[in-house]
């Protein structure tokens, strides 16, 4: 589904991704772990189409498309979703209506019929339960005045409504208490399916107790330095990243 080959990216002349390779197949959950500043979030942003990064080389193939040629909205329309580490507050724009506009632009691009208000409301009612989000937050402006946990759950709610093919979760666990973490994980798990893949970026192993990954990668200095199964995450938890950073430098 997703194939990244020798991806190099920089910002202001500073290289952040230094030849990164990754392949994700439909139905899989990949965890990407790594120390601060290793390039995890940059990878997420580059995949979603953030234009502030210079692509210096390599390729990203999503199904049959050259992802790097596409705008962020075209990627979303293809079924790529990024759950933001820091969801943006948008005062004056209701959460529900924004999501309806987003969903309908995705559906339109896919040649599907746009949902009318009634059908959309039905969908929202159904999905909002998945993330146990207070329905009053639907009427409020996007993320405006939401608590940290509410913002993260709102991201998962957006994901549930948009039903992406590939979902990238950028440190969705950071700053969450254990209850919110469980809710977020349940939301993700309920969306797991044979034709949908997840890339879960996290700093800590904790989230992976709830979202059990098929593959775990460790990224150091913009490269994947180790790949394993979920046991690798446990190993990192006890040993830290130090031993891999040395390995990466070697």
């Amino acid at each position: 589904m997703l194939k990244i080959e020798d991806l190099r990216a920089s910002v202001d002349g500073q290289e952040i991704l230094s030849g990164l390779n990754l392949e994700v197949k439909a139905g899989e959950v990949h965890a990407i772990m790594g120390p601060n500043g290793s390039g995890k979030s940059t990878l997420a942003q580059v995949l979603a189409g953030r234009e502030d990064y210079e692509i210096d080389g390599g390729s990203v193939q999503f199904e049959d498309e050259d992802l790097l040629e596409l705008s962020p909205e075209e990627r979303a329309q293809l079924g790529i979703f990024l759950a933001f580490q820091y969801p943006v507050e948008i005062p004056g724009v209701s959460n529900t209506y924004f999501l309806k506009a987003a969903l309908n632009s995705v559906r339109k691009a896919r040649g599907e019929q746009e949902l009318d208000a009634m059908d959309f409301l039905k969908l929202v009612r159904e999905k909002v339960k998945v993330v146990e989000l207070d329905e009053s937050l639907m009427k409020r402006p996007v993320n405006d005045g939401f608590s940290g946990g509410e913002k993260k759950r709102n991201e998962i709610f957006h994901m549930a409504v948009l039903e992406p093919r590939l979902a990238i979760l950028d440190e969705t666990d950071s700053g969450l208490d254990i209850d919110a973490l469980r809710t977020v994980a349940n939301g993700v798990n309920s969306l797991r399916s044979p034709d949908r893949a997840f890339v879960v970026i996290t700093h800590y192993q904790r989230l992976l107790e709830y979202i059990v990954p098929d593959v775990v990668h460790v990224i150091v200095d913009g490269q994947i330095v180790r790949t394993g199964d979920k046991e690798l995450a446990l190993e990192l938890e006890s040993k830290g990243y130090g031993w891999l950073e040395q390995a990466g430098a070697a």
Binding site: A48, G49, R50, E51, S71, P72, E73, R75, A76, Q77, F81, L82, F84, P87, V88, I90, P91, G92, V93, F98, L99, A101, A102, L103, S105, V106, A109, P141, H158, L162
Partner: peptide, 24 residues
């Protein structure tokens, strides 16, 4: 970027944010 990454066309996203600025 947030709005575009959810599938909104750039022009619509710009307009939405401009409206959001006025909404206060």
């Amino acid at each position: 970027f947030y709005l575009r990454s959810r599938g909104m066309e750039e022009k619509a996203a710009r307009s939405l944010l401009t409206y959001a600025f006025a909404s206060e």
